[in-house]
Write a protein that binds this DNA or RNA. Structure first.
Lengths: 351, 351
DNA sequence: ACGGGCCGCGCAAACCTTTGAACAAAACTC
DNA sequence: GAGTTTTGTTCAAAGGTTTGCGCGGCCCGT
């Protein structure tokens, strides 16, 4: 009566090359070669051992394999703040594509908390083949450790300030494109809702936008700090709504879709219409699913997440096999999604 | 001119017990014991070796340690659909709390795609100490593998149908509580927007709600399938708006906050007010951050995510050390968040 | 002065897989 | 039929860590 209902507990002691070799009556190395498809082993033996392995539920011990100097198949992952809906989408794509390449993701860090010492221990202790960083807020620690220990590192959706390998959307171009469209549609008073001041993504988007405006002889009527959160966008919207009507911008660029949604919510709650026909035009950047649908139907630059992830893994794996490869920056052009949240030039209205 | 600017590449060959022992002039085992704080080693030697290890950037090789039969410190993770904003929050909490306990998360699967054979290989090959499953849609494969190989498994925010260990919010009670509040506030025509038909979470919430209504002699005026997505909630809202006014419900329970937000968006876009003073009352379940803020200010049951994760890890670690522990179901009561999206009994209005 | 006990440390095995080298046997060549 | 290649398999080592056991040296009691 010690354990009430301990269900079928085979607890077979884990199939190993040794156990398989014993039941097959051959040596350990024969089993190993048979399972890896070595042609030196006769087809008959190979088939027999494969069947045995499948039946025993054998899975090669990746740890022992890695110990031999091989690769661990582990990618260390540093995740950005999960409340930004862009990151969950990125994560899902990353998991899927990594699995397709036989890689697994080991989460080193998530969110905005500080990176503890344990992160370094994990990075080295589990012998990750490389690291992917999607958050640039506090990467210094991981970046340093990777550099010291020759662990390849690739930033996805971020660009290192002075060096490093990264793949990102062409944020400056996207910002400029949005500015050009808004200008062509006749807007004249522009506002920006910025994100984290210390992330390259936000900086580049805002800079591209402002530069394009300046080229056309325009400036920013006002600028708000949205902190990359939906709540920040909401707060910015309230402040815009509180302006006297003649001081309000007629076009607002929120540098991330999350902020754009909060912004639209705030404007509408203040009875200020947002859209292509009347009121204020709002554009965003990211292309998160929720923003593309009603009630937002946001005009935004869609970051090509699948391609971003694909190129990121390409770059990382290339550096796993060739550690001396020079730093590389890959920039992918985003696609404009013309929604109903902004007045656009006539040429686009049909699309 | 082969590699343009290959920065400082120390590529020191990875500090190991052997390398440390050589520089320290002692044996490997002494270094091992010194670093683990074994009192048999003299304090002086311990300090000296610790300093050496820190300087060399030594990190114990977890793989080799695990090979000895110890624990890997790895928790396999099966994630639910990331587009539901509840999961990113759960993930962030999970990463933080796991790190606090010295554990790392290895992502086995994310999203709704089917579970491939590689998942099994990873689960066994990396010798995960246990698994946490937050998605019950396709767990059969992982559940079976864990059961066969005596790998502890805990479901978080899910309940297994017939057996297994799980920790979840008291979904039925929460649903019933919401029903009771809506009844007490005088609502009479009720609707439900359901989620995935095959997840225990959605089922229990809906069942609790309907049961409590039935006890009071009421039924459901209508029911919609929201598919656990925001878009599904939006679609349900449009269908409600399309009903003739006298056929519309005066209270709607969306079994997840994401659907509730879509629902509110749709009702408002159809000029049907939602809120505590007029129009339709909407309540949700989860307590995701966005839903608690304007413009939703949703009345919802907040799932206690930190406690959920804490108990989940408790249960998992208990089963790592004691594999024969019987199945256990832990249910945590959610907290009512009285927002402005629903008319509530007067006793709550002051709160 | 000598033996017992303790203190600090080293030896070696074990964990599991991969792989180059070696080895035996069978199938060729002439 | 002897030499040579091919074929099928085994041996052994390596990789980094943990740990039971053993071994010297020192202190203390007598």
């Amino acid at each position: 009566m010690d354990h009430p209902v301990s269900r079928s507990r085979p607890a077979r002691p884990r199939a190993t090359l040794l156990s398989l070799s014993q039941t097959a009556g051959v040596s350990i190395s024969t089993v190993s070669r048979a399972l890896r498809g070595d042609t030196r082993i006769s087809p008959a033996t190979r088939r027999r051992i494969s069947a045995l392995a499948a039946e025993a539920g054998y899975a090669p011990d990746t740890l022992a394999r890695t110990l031999l100097g091989g690769r661990s198949g582990l990618i260390g992952l540093v995740l950005g703040p999960m409340r930004n809906p862009f990151y969950p989408a990125l994560l899902e794509e990353l998991v899927a594509q990594a699995a397709d390449r036989g890689l697994r993701l080991l989460i080193l860090h998530a969110g905005e908390g500080s990176m503890e010492e344990r992160t370094a221990q994990a990075l080295l202790g589990y012998r990750v083949d490389g690291c992917i960083v999607t958050s640039a807020v506090l990467p210094s620690r991981v970046t340093a450790i990777c550099a010291e220990n020759a662990v390849p590192l690739v930033m996805v959706n971020r660009v290192a300030r002075d060096h490093g390998t990264a793949v990102s959307c062409d944020n400056a171009e996207g910002g400029a494109r949005l500015a050009g469209l808004l200008l062509a549609a006749g807007h004249r008073r522009f506002a920006v809702v910025g994100g984290h001041a210390d992330t390259s993504t936000s900086q580049d988007r805002e800079r591209g936008f402002a530069t394009r405006l300046a080229e056309a002889g325009h400036g920013l009527a006002c600028r708000f700090d949205g902190g990359s959160t939906r709540e920040g966008g909401w707060a910015a919207g309230l402040r815009i709504a509180a302006l006297p009507p003649e001081a309000r911008p007629d076009a607002v660029f929120a540098v991330s879709d999350g902020m754009a949604m909060g912004l639209i919510d705030a404007l509408r709650s203040a009875a200020i219409p947002v859209g292509m026909t009347e009121g204020i035009s709002v554009v965003g950047f990211d292309g998160v699913a929720t923003a593309l649908h009603p009630p937002y139907e946001l005009t935004t630059i869609v970051v090509p997440v699948p391609a971003l992830v694909r190129r990121g893994l390409d770059l990382l794996l290339a550096r796993v096999t060739e550690p001396d490869a020079p730093d590389e920056l890959v920039t992918l052009r985003g696609e404009l999604h013309p929604g109903r949240s902004a007045r656009l030039p006539a040429m686009l209205e049909g699309a």
